[in-house]
Measured scan of single mutants.
Amino acid sequence: DHWEIRVGDITIHLKDVDEEIIRWVEEALRNGDDLEEIKRWVEEVLR
């Protein structure tokens, strides 16, 4: 699977990601969370 999350001008590409993570990231972006923080979290989860 390949996911693209778009929020404003930001697009995040994710592969082999659980839908729950996608929802979490979308929510975090909508809440204005720091992008670097989100990326770190996702990388942590995917490890």
Score class of each variant (00 low, 15 high):
38 I>T: 01
14 L>V: 10
27 E>R: 15
23 R>D: 01
41 W>S: 02
41 W>C: 06
31 N>I: 04
47 R>I: 09
6 R>D: 02
40 R>I: 04
42 V>P: 00
28 A>I: 10
12 I>A: 02
14 L>H: 02
7 V>T: 02
17 V>Y: 09
42 V>S: 00
9 D>P: 09
46 L>G: 01
5 I>H: 02
30 R>S: 05
46 L>W: 06
12 I>P: 01
13 H>I: 13
46 L>V: 04
1 D>T: 14
23 R>I: 04
3 W>L: 04
17 V>F: 08
18 D>K: 10
2 H>P: 11
16 D>A: 11
3 W>T: 04
44 E>G: 04
44 E>N: 09
11 T>L: 10
15 K>Y: 12
44 E>Y: 13
12 I>H: 02
10 I>A: 07
24 W>R: 07
44 E>A: 12
7 V>E: 02
22 I>V: 10
34 D>V: 12
5 I>Q: 01
21 I>T: 06
34 D>M: 14
39 K>T: 05
38 I>P: 00
11 T>Y: 13
20 E>I: 11
20 E>L: 12
16 D>N: 13
34 D>S: 10
38 I>N: 00
32 G>I: 11
42 V>D: 00
17 V>E: 02
4 E>M: 12
34 D>L: 14
25 V>S: 00
15 K>L: 06
38 I>S: 00
47 R>F: 03
31 N>Y: 05
16 D>C: 04
4 E>S: 08
41 W>Y: 13
41 W>D: 00
4 E>K: 09
7 V>H: 09
36 E>H: 07
9 D>A: 11
42 V>C: 02
28 A>H: 10
38 I>Q: 00
4 E>W: 14
26 E>P: 00
5 I>S: 01
45 V>A: 14
18 D>E: 06
23 R>Y: 03
39 K>F: 14
35 L>W: 08
29 L>M: 08
27 E>M: 15
38 I>Y: 04
25 V>G: 00
23 R>M: 07
31 N>G: 05
45 V>K: 12
30 R>G: 05
12 I>K: 02
45 V>C: 04
14 L>A: 04
9 D>M: 13
6 R>L: 03
8 G>R: 03
22 I>Q: 07
30 R>Y: 07
24 W>Y: 09
34 D>N: 13
41 W>M: 08
41 W>G: 01
34 D>G: 07
16 D>W: 12
23 R>P: 01
27 E>W: 15
38 I>C: 01
34 D>W: 14
27 E>P: 00
22 I>N: 01
13 H>Q: 09
44 E>T: 06
29 L>Y: 06
20 E>C: 00
30 R>I: 06
32 G>E: 05
20 E>A: 11
34 D>K: 08
34 D>H: 12
38 I>D: 00
2 H>S: 11
44 E>R: 15
20 E>V: 13
24 W>Q: 06
18 D>H: 07
18 D>N: 13
42 V>T: 01
29 L>D: 00
34 D>T: 14
28 A>F: 09
21 I>M: 08
22 I>L: 12
28 A>K: 14
17 V>N: 03
29 L>P: 00
12 I>V: 10
19 E>T: 11
19 E>Y: 12
28 A>L: 07
38 I>A: 01
35 L>K: 04
43 E>D: 08
44 E>S: 07
22 I>K: 11
37 E>Y: 15
20 E>M: 10
24 W>P: 00
24 W>N: 02
33 D>S: 11
35 L>R: 04
32 G>H: 10
19 E>D: 11
33 D>H: 11
23 R>A: 08
17 V>C: 03
2 H>W: 14
33 D>E: 11
2 H>L: 12
1 D>R: 09
5 I>G: 01
2 H>I: 13
11 T>S: 09
9 D>Y: 08
4 E>H: 13
15 K>G: 06
40 R>D: 02
14 L>Q: 02
39 K>Y: 13
15 K>P: 04
32 G>P: 10
32 G>L: 09
7 V>N: 03
6 R>F: 03
10 I>N: 04
25 V>D: 00
2 H>A: 09
16 D>M: 11
33 D>L: 15
21 I>C: 04
7 V>L: 09
5 I>K: 01
18 D>G: 12
32 G>T: 08
20 E>R: 14
13 H>T: 13
42 V>R: 00
46 L>E: 01
10 I>S: 05
1 D>V: 12
7 V>I: 12
21 I>R: 03
8 G>W: 08
28 A>E: 01
31 N>T: 06
7 V>S: 03
16 D>H: 13
29 L>A: 02
6 R>P: 02
46 L>H: 01
20 E>W: 15
16 D>E: 07
8 G>Q: 04
11 T>C: 03
10 I>P: 00
7 V>Y: 08
3 W>G: 03
15 K>C: 09
25 V>M: 05
33 D>M: 14
28 A>S: 07
9 D>G: 08
14 L>Y: 06
33 D>K: 14
2 H>Y: 14
1 D>Q: 13
1 D>S: 14
37 E>C: 05
27 E>I: 13
